[in-house]
């Protein structure tokens, strides 16, 4: 948040989150390498170097799969929100697991080449016109590069510097990267694997990710809030009824411009702020008021509902909206106030 940057902001919850993650990764690798080689058997016998490479590769694939499942799960059921809280550490660890996989591969398959190792990686297979024998290494390289960009730009500095909009646009690359990763696995190791367990688990994992995201897209097609109606007076739009807003909670309204407004009731008075958290554009209207502050459900960033400002020493700000009541209907001005502008709450 907006205090002096430090390398990593730890707290007890993050320690627990990371500890569980490290144990799960270690367990996965241990099972893959030592316990289940017969279950994950390959048509031709593989040596320990290849098994290590495949173990780390499979681990990275399933980690990225889980990372991509967390977002839609949290949208579908708020009980999954704690998983979202520290997802960036998950992503960073997935990158390093994938990087380890890449080094195992380079160190075995391209170790004895007379030309540069990376040159050999790019030039050893160029059969791009064929599906069978397609250079799946390129797909893996692309996915690794994207995972690297995501992991190395995960510090809070990047969010503030790039703005959530640019940062998220950059991180949307994870979608083509995941498609490439599915291709990397399916055109690579699964071409050789005879074990139905491996094929089914990779296929099912990718299928679940797709289904969850499509379910959320269909659910939110309606907008996830109430569409605003034009008021008689120009420049104002009705977003909801005053009775729709419970004490200590928010209600999301969608303006004609597509902007979302979060209307909150605190001490019997209504205030309206932008629905997009200044941190990662989390849905503030789905949060609630804790200690007199609107609290983002994603990462706990907090704002004074009358000013849109985070409490000192933090300096995050979100835009506020002028608000008025007409016969029990809540109207907000279409144009937002600059972030941090005080607006007098309206008794309702």
């Amino acid at each position: 948040m907006s205090v002096k940057y430090i390398p990593v902001q730890w707290n007890p919850n993050k320690w627990v989150y990371d500890a569980i993650m490290v144990v799960a990764v270690a367990l996965f690798l241990w099972i893959f390498i030592f316990i289940a080689p017969d279950v994950l058997n390959h048509n031709r016998a593989i040596n320990p170097q290849i098994r290590n490479a495949r173990a780390f590769g499979a681990c990275a694939f399933f980690m990225l799969t889980i990372i991509l499942m967390i977002g839609p799960l949290a949208r579908l059921d708020t009980r999954f929100l704690p998983l979202l809280y520290n997802r960036r550490h998950f992503g960073v660890m997935a990158f390093f697991i994938a990087l380890t996989h890449a080094f195992f591969v380079l160190d075995w398959y391209f170790s004895f080449t007379p030309i540069n190792t990376y040159e050999a990686l790019l030039s050893s297979n160029t059969s791009v016109t064929r599906l069978r024998g397609f250079p799946f290494e390129w797909l893996g390289l692309f996915a690794l590069l994207v995972m690297g960009v995501m992991a190395l730009t995960s510090h809070d500095f990047w969010l503030k510097f790039l703005t959530p909009r640019v940062w998220k646009a950059l991180h949307f690359l994870v979608y083509p990267a995941y498609a490439a990763l599915v291709g990397h696995v399916a055109l690579g190791v699964l071409q050789d694997a005879q074990s139905p367990v491996m094929i089914a688990s990779f296929g099912a994992a990718a299928g679940v990710v797709v289904l969850l995201h499509v379910a959320v897209a269909l659910k939110e097609r309606g907008g996830g809030g109430d569409a605003a109606a034009e008021a008689g007076e120009p420049g104002w739009e009705q977003v909801c009824q005053a009775d729709d807003v419970r004490e200590g909670f928010g209600h999301i309204g969608i303006l004609a411009s597509g902007e979302r407004v979060a209307v909150f009731r605190q001490d019997g008075k209504l205030s309206a702020i932008s629905n997009a958290c200044a941190h990662q554009n989390g849905p503030l209207g789905e949060g609630r008021i804790i200690d007199c502050l609107v609290t983002c459900p994603w990462h706990g960033f907090q704002y004074d509902v009358t000013t849109g400002r985070s409490p000192a020493p933090f300096t995050e700000k979100v835009p506020t909206y002028d608000l008025k009541l007409v016969d029990g209907a809540v109207f907000v001005r279409s144009e937002a106030n600059p972030p941090g502008t005080y607006v007098e709450p309206v008794p309702a």
Binding site: K168, Y175, V210, V214, S274, A276, A278, P319
Partner: peptide, 21 residues
């Protein structure tokens, strides 16, 4: 800074829903 690209997710996953399988 306060205008997320909210429509992109849905569209991207409609493409992904075809591409990945």
């Amino acid at each position: 800074r306060h205008r997320p690209q909210r429509r992109f997710h849905g569209r991207a996953w409609m493409v992904m829903a075809v591409a990945v399988p």
